[in-house]
């Protein structure tokens, strides 16, 4: 089985279209989006249309919840005043430009999707299984914490997005207090993974303009027998017409700071939430 996963779209309908074509060409049998359709970019309705037209299965992100319910802000959880200022600009723009029909649809999205492949339980969420807007950064998320999430939520592979940076970790399950106290079944010796699938919405603060999505292959497609794991993840850097996106953003009077990110690959806003390891990789 070949599965394609798209993270936060942030209104980047151009990258979304490119990603769908790319994933189909690579043989994707199912496509998922892990939420945050809006923010940052132009013309929110276009993203909703493309997602719905292609019957992509969607998990509701904090943004989708906010826009759907017409809340005052995106619930991204920034704590810095400058970050909040810019987050509010894109939120107000997205809210004003999303049709009632799409907003009604956003309200209906589930907060998690689960399925089983070859006896392994996959859980798709936006931030973390326990909280839609929880940031799971690679350098501030301990393996014991991920291991306990798998126990508490009865799954083996967790996929999420929300932070804007892709990463993955694989470990052998070990006992947690959840199963020691009998609240979940005893831990078999199995492999577990957390996969942050990245985002299509904006580049990864690495000075390149491409964005990222993920393909997960299971069973024979994962090269079973050769690979020690029954699933395999591939992070895919995606080039798209970022100049066209920048032109549309300019025409919509979106902030220059956002356009600069699209054109340079460096984040200019929302930097204060980055832990130091991730922050040091960027320019600002």
């Amino acid at each position: 089985m070949q599965l394609a996963f798209f993270g936060g779209i942030y209104n980047n309908h151009i990258a979304l279209k490119t990603a769908i074509a790319d994933a189909q060409q690579r043989g994707a049998e199912r496509m998922f989006c892990l939420g945050d359709l809006g923010a940052f970019g132009p013309h929110p309705d276009r993203t909703c249309e493309i997602i719905r037209e292609h019957k992509i299965e969607v998990v509701q992100g904090n943004y989708d919840h906010s826009i759907g319910h017409g809340l005052n802000d995106c619930q991204c959880g920034y704590t810095d005043p400058r970050d909040n200022h810019f987050a509010q600009l894109s939120y107000d723009y997205t809210l004003a430009n999303t049709s009632d029909e799409h907003r009604a649809w956003l309200r209906t999205l589930p907060t998690e999707i689960r399925f089983e492949v070859d006896g392994f339980r996959f859980l798709l969420c936006h931030g973390s299984p326990r909280r839609t807007n929880e940031f799971l950064w690679e350098s501030t998320t301990s393996t014991p914490f991920l291991n306990k999430l798998c126990d508490d939520f009865a799954c083996d592979v967790i996929l999420g997005t929300h932070t804007g940076l892709h990463w993955q970790r694989t470990w052998d399950a070990f006992p947690t207090c959840s199963n020691l106290t009998g609240t979940s079944e005893a831990c078999p010796t199995i492999t577990r993974s957390y996969i942050n699938i990245g985002v299509l919405g904006r580049p990864e603060n690495d000075g390149t303009t491409n964005v990222w999505y993920s393909m997960v292959r299971t069973g024979n497609d994962a090269g079973a027998g050769r690979s020690p794991l029954p699933w395999k993840v591939e992070f895919i850097p995606l080039a798209y017409d970022h100049n066209q996106l920048a032109r549309e953003m300019r025409a919509e009077h979106l902030p220059d700071e956002f356009i600069e990110t699209i054109l340079t690959g460096w984040w200019t806003t929302c930097l204060e939430v980055l832990p130091s390891k991730e922050r040091r990789r960027g320019q600002w």
Binding site: Q75, T79, T140
Partner: peptide, 11 residues
């Protein structure tokens, strides 16, 4: 808590 934890915990 640090800003990277997000807003659930207000500084």
């Amino acid at each position: 808590t640090n800003p990277s934890s997000g807003s659930a915990f207000k500084p």
